[in-house]
Each structure stands twice: as structure tokens, then as C-alpha cells.
């Protein structure tokens, strides 16, 4: 009997350490391509797209960085400062912190969109992913791909998720796959988030809900979806790229 308890204890400990291994930080490099973004907007005219391609040429990219802290139940994603930035000028960092908790099945995202700061608190809602047939390596992990079409913006979103990191998290507001999403490619290169560095460590102290002032309003997912679709509709009407108003 003692022997059995010992075995169970060992198993539990190993399970526990296994679980602990699934905790750490992932640094993402976020590449925006202005020309590809413009080209992906269906309602813009071809001549506008041609002109953008011509004017911006190879100067159409810029890079940002973000970090995702996670363990097997929680994740918190936020933008970080560019390590190689030019000059000392300090812009204000973006208010965009994405928090997921699987145990409580809740989101708690602090977002500034169209100049309003709010929190989206709701059940975790994931898109209907279509599993594809490609395999590639991202940041040392073998990944499979999955995709869906954004129902509001019409963008094709391809996610590469790691087969050996079985947590349903990812960068930005993406998740719900059998493995950690290490790369997101929106509209074939218009916006690409790629994991560049994965570190296994205890990050429990960082895995907290984003802090904010009490007056910041808390809304549900439906509110956010409506806000985004209203903005896209408005941009469509005015024939200007919607990403002038909201995130791509």
C-alpha cells in the first residue's frame, strides 16, 4: 500500500512538473505590411491599391513586439517596447492587454479602440478553425496550420500551432486550437505575428488581469463585435481603409 502511495505521489509530482513546464513567455515579432493591408481591402479601388504599391514599395513594413505569458490555465498578452528602436523618442505604449482564464472560462481584455478604453469580459469564444495540412517549424517547434475567415473584416487568418505545447492560447485574441499558436498570418503577409523566443519559466506573478481605473467600463463580446462591425461598415461607406479607424 505504501508502495502504491509512493508511486501515485511520484506520478503526481511528474505530472505536476510536466504542468509546470507548460508555463513561460513567448516573444512575438509583429510585422505590418501597409501595401498588403491596402491590397486586402476588397472595397478599395484597384487604382488606389496600385498607387499604394508604387508609393510605398519596400518601405511598407514596420515591426512591433509583444509578449505572451502563459501557464496551462491562463494567458496574458501585451505589447512591449522595441529593443532595437531608433532614437530615444518614447511613444506611449498601446493599451491592449489580452487575458484568458480557462478555469473560469473568461476573457478580461483591456482594449483601447476608436479612442475608447474598455474591458471585454465574457466567456472565451473561439472562431471555427479549419484544420489544414501543412507542417512547419516556428521557433523550434513543429507546427500545423489552421485557418478561418474573419466574418467582419473578411481577412483570411492562418494560425500555426505547436503540437508539443497543448494549451489553447495564442497572440492577440487568437486561441482555441489544440496547441499554442506560434504564428498568425493575416491576409497573406499583411500582418504576421511570429514567435521568436520561447522561454520556460514560472510566470505566475505576471498572470493577472490587466489593471485599470474603476471608471473603465466593462462590456461583453457582443459589444466589441458590434463596435468593430460598425466601424468596418462606416469605412466601407466612406471608401477608406477600415484600419485607419481600428486595428487591422
Amino acid at each position: 500500500m505504501k508502495y502504491l502511495i509512493f508511486i501515485i505521489a511520484i506520478v503526481l509530482i511528474t505530472l505536476n512538473t510536466n504542468a509546470q513546464e507548460l508555463s513561460g513567455t513567448i516573444k512575438y515579432e509583429i510585422k505590418h505590411d501597409w501595401v498588403k493591408k491596402i491590397n486586402s481591402v476588397k472595397y478599395l479601388s484597384q487604382s488606389e491599391k496600385d498607387k499604394a504599391s508604387y508609393m510605398w514599395g519596400t518601405h511598407s513594413e514596420y515591426t512591433e513586439y509583444a509578449v505572451l505569458c502563459f501557464d496551462k490555465n491562463t494567458s496574458r498578452y501585451e505589447k512591449i517596447e522595441d529593443e532595437n528602436k531608433e532614437g530615444s523618442w518614447a511613444w506611449r505604449s498601446e493599451e491592449y492587454i489580452i487575458y484568458r482564464n480557462l478555469e473560469e472560462n473568461t476573457t478580461y481584455d483591456l482594449i483601447r479602440e476608436v479612442n475608447k478604453l474598455f474591458v471585454i469580459k465574457d466567456e472565451i469564444q473561439n472562431p471555427t478553425w479549419k484544420i489544414l495540412n501543412n507542417i512547419k517549424e516556428v521557433a523550434g517547434h513543429i507546427c500545423m496550420d489552421a485557418m478561418y475567415i474573419d466574418p467582419i473584416k473578411g481577412n483570411k487568418i492562418v494560425a500555426w500551432f505547436a503540437l508539443d505545447m497543448p494549451v489553447p492560447f495564442g497572440p492577440d485574441r487568437f486561441g482555441g486550437l489544440p496547441g499554442m499558436i506560434l504564428e498568425i498570418d493575416i491576409s497573406e503577409g499583411a500582418l504576421v505575428m511570429t514567435a521568436t523566443k520561447i522561454e520556460n519559466k514560472d510566470v505566475s506573478e505576471f498572470l493577472v488581469k490587466p489593471k485599470h481605473k474603476r471608471k473603465v467600463k466593462i462590456h461583453n463580446e457582443e459589444y466589441y463585435t458590434k463596435l468593430i462591425s460598425d466601424q468596418v461598415e462606416q469605412a466601407k461607406k466612406a471608401e477608406r481603409p477600415y484600419f485607419w479607424q481600428i486595428r487591422y
Binding site: W129, K130, I131, A146, D164, P166, L177, P178
Partner: peptide
């Protein structure tokens, strides 16, 4: 052990459920 097993809709390959 620890292989990812995904249950997809046979019509459009959308992910229904998964386990290991």
C-alpha cells in the same frame, strides 16, 4: 503518448473537438 488527436467535420475540416 501525447499525440494530438483532432476531430474534424468531414465536410469542411472545421475543428469540432480535440484531445491527446
Amino acid at each position: 503518448p501525447a499525440a494530438t488527436v483532432m476531430l474534424l467535420n468531414s465536410k469542411d475540416s472545421t475543428l469540432i473537438n480535440y484531445t491527446t
